[in-house]
């Protein structure tokens, strides 16, 4: 399963600002998985924010500033991996739009795009690995983050990785592919609609009888976890990277 040393490659970690500041465990799990795969994680300390929030709010000038910084930091890397579907979609799909009037930057953005991967996409599609090992006796519900599933077209990859964990079983979850109501600033600007959506999501999770709710995007996680803490503190939601890294740790203990 591990890559042998001749293949050992450097993987540049693209850590979203939410992960850096609020959910650092996701970043550490990502780094651990990269090591587990026999690759060497590289972290550019100069990285900041990809500009997603400014872009989605209509502040393109500010987003461009951050995007230029991102490109400068990452453009010499061969493989860039992030535990966030929405940040990856921003870099791969929105940067070219953002620089539609700046051909030089657009060219650099387009050159960078194919080297940026969402974590599960990197493992399954790029490395061709579907089984990371690991053990976890749990029924797992998987929330399909919109940016991951609909913008990047990544659906089977994370589920394959979950299914390969010994003892873990994916359970059906009604509306798994419907938005959790996060939408970045949407959750703050339209709290009534956002709350209705996250309520629907969480109710379906609870009805599914699953032990855990796993997802690929820190944004969805902040939303769902924050709602669970308020209303159903006994319930757990976590990021795919954390789930996989925990499962691997668990297996190595036994």
């Amino acid at each position: 399963m591990k890559l042998n040393h001749s293949q050992k490659k450097k993987v540049s970690l693209f850590i979203p600002c939410t992960v850096d500041l609020v959910l650092p465990a996701i970043g550490e799990s990502t780094a651990a998985l990269v090591r587990h795969l026999g690759c060497t994680p590289v972290y550019h300390r100069e990285q900041t924010c990809c500009g997603l929030m400014a872009f989605n709010s209509g502040f393109r000038q500010q987003a461009r500033r951050l995007a230029r910084h991102f490109i400068e930091v990452f453009e010499n890397d061969e493989v860039i991996v992030s535990p966030s579907g929405s940040c990856v979609a921003m870099v791969k799909q929105r940067y070219p739009e953002l620089f539609e009037d700046q051909p030089d930057w657009q060219r650099r953005a387009l050159a960078l795009a194919p080297r940026v991967f969402e974590l599960s996409q990197f493992i399954v599609d790029h490395l061709g690995i579907r089984d990371l090992g690991g053990a976890c006796n749990a029924k797992v519900a998987f929330h399909e983050s919109c940016s991951t599933l609909n913008a990047l077209g990544i659906g089977p990859q994370p589920k394959a990785l979950i299914s390969a964990v010994r003892g873990a079983s994916l359970v059906y979850f009604k509306g798994a592919d419907v938005c959790c109501g996060f939408g970045g600033t949407f959750s703050n600007a339209f709290p009534d609609i956002s709350t209705a959506l996250v309520t629907q999501k969480v109710n379906a999770y609870i009805e599914s009888q699953a032990d855990l709710l796993v997802m690929c995007d820190p944004g969805c996680l902040l939303n769902i976890q924050g709602f669970l803490h308020r209303r159903h503190p006994e319930r757990r939601a976590l990021h795919l990277a954390e789930f996989l890294a925990e499962s691997i740790r668990e297996e190595s203990k036994t």
């Binding site: 500041l21 650092p24 600007a189 956002s194 924050g226 709602f227 308020r230 209303r231």
Partner: peptide, 12 residues
């Protein structure tokens, strides 16, 4: 709006 129905983890 956010805190209408959600908490936020304290920043580590």
């Amino acid at each position: 709006g956010w805190f209408q129905s959600r908490d936020l983890p304290a920043l580590p």
